[in-house]
Write a protein that binds this DNA or RNA. Structure first.
Lengths: 220, 220
DNA sequence: TTCAAAGTGTAACATTTGTTACACCTGAGA
DNA sequence: TCTCAGGTGTAACAAATGTTACACTTTGAA
């Protein structure tokens, strides 16, 4: 079985080709051509939608850390699984196909039945939701820090296990600035100030926390 | 049965006094005195903790919209239910009792068993998580808008169903500024500029959207 | 090695927001 | 009615961040 994105394996596990696929599961598969409007903002979300192949464009928040704006989702992934069970179960944004798209649609009742009959699926579903909540909480913490230095401190303290330990970031300044939601030169300025203040040291993409206590004071 | 906060009813439903309380459920109830450290940041979270009575202090993000900082949680509410099923199932913050506290503790295995055996409980659990995710997503959207005018626009467009319709806010400027995470005079300045620009009108606490299209352009 | 593209450091200036301070208004009680 | 506390409008200034521009460095491929 193809395994692309570890986080979404459990949804990819639901696959017609799978021997384990429940034979009595009620579901539909819908195909969309390129540039079709799949869901409109405000549409009722009464089924679990799993993007099986292709890619779509939405404006939701994603695991990658991007906010709002246009967002591209690639198969295999569920579409807005958080909205299936919420009280206000309506799509928050438009969903449009970017290419030929295949969507597996399992009605809410069936999802519930599937979960009660297959504890492993239920646990995977729960884990997914839990991970997403945790991600959102983290992201929210980061964004709620007002100053750029504070964001940097939060991020570096999370990365560095120990004071004085050196670690390599696989993001460049531009990506880091996007992640923080700030302008690139502003990030560079803050970084160089923090180096001057002796809080951290940077050599290429190798970062070292020199003064963890000082960093913590920036978190406000 | 006491029903304090509608969102948490389903957890309050699990109550020893309840006729419906499952007789074979394995659980423990722990009592804490005032100012005891209940959980420490990094502690393993392998059970569903429900605060049955009393109140505790934490630093998590809450439904009320407050970010980080010290947060007070009053019974009945679960403590960090999102972390029970997440891959990184550790408490993100310290939890300390503010008064005498009673905590119902259901092991993870038992929670799973309870959910499979009682679909209504499962659905309530799912709905709670879904609502929380939706809340966090909303909050994140708001925070990811950089300008104060943008935040105001986002908020007012959400409140106003129609252009030209007048509605009353039950928050004063100070509360609104806290909600947006900005300084009060800055909010007032932005509001009065938006009134001057003809986007909205304000009379006491009655707000009217005059130019919805113009507001949408502020969302960037 | 050479060269172009991407990444980085930094400066000058513009813009936005925060801070502080104070005057005014409004409404609930004495 | 008076009074006072909370809420609001606004101004002057400070601080942080964004914008634009450009030179330098690193990297990777020809």
């Amino acid at each position: 079985m193809k395994r692309i994105d570890p986080e979404w394996n459990h949804f990819h596990n639901i696959n017609e080709d799978d021997n384990d696929f429940p034979t009595d599961l009620k579901y539909t598969i819908r195909l969309y051509k390129k540039n079709e409007l799949i869901y409109r903002q405000g549409d009722l979300c009464d089924a679990l939608n799993i993007l099986m192949s292709g890619s779509v464009k939405t404006e939701m928040i994603t695991e990658s850390g991007n906010l709002m704006g246009i967002e591209i989702i690639k198969a295999p992934r569920p579409l807005a699984p958080a909205f299936l069970f919420s009280d206000n179960n309506r799509f928050p944004v438009d969903v449009t196909s970017l290419e030929e798209v295949e969507i597996l649609r399992i009605p809410k009742d069936e999802v519930i039945r599937l979960m009660t009959s297959r504890p492993d699926f239920m646990q995977q579903f729960l884990t997914h939701n839990a991970n997403r909540t945790q991600f959102l909480t983290n992201r929210l913490q980061l964004l709620s820090i007002k100053t750029i230095k504070g964001k940097i401190a939060h991020f570096l303290l999370e990365q560095a296990n120990e004071e004085g330990k050196t670690f390599t970031l696989n993001r460049n300044q531009t990506e880091l600035a996007d992640f923080f939601g700030v302008a690139r030169p502003s990030l560079a300025r803050s970084l160089s100030e923090m180096v001057q203040e002796g809080l951290i040291s940077i050599k290429n993409k190798e970062y070292t926390v020199l003064n963890a206590k000082g960093l913590r004071e920036l978190l406000v």
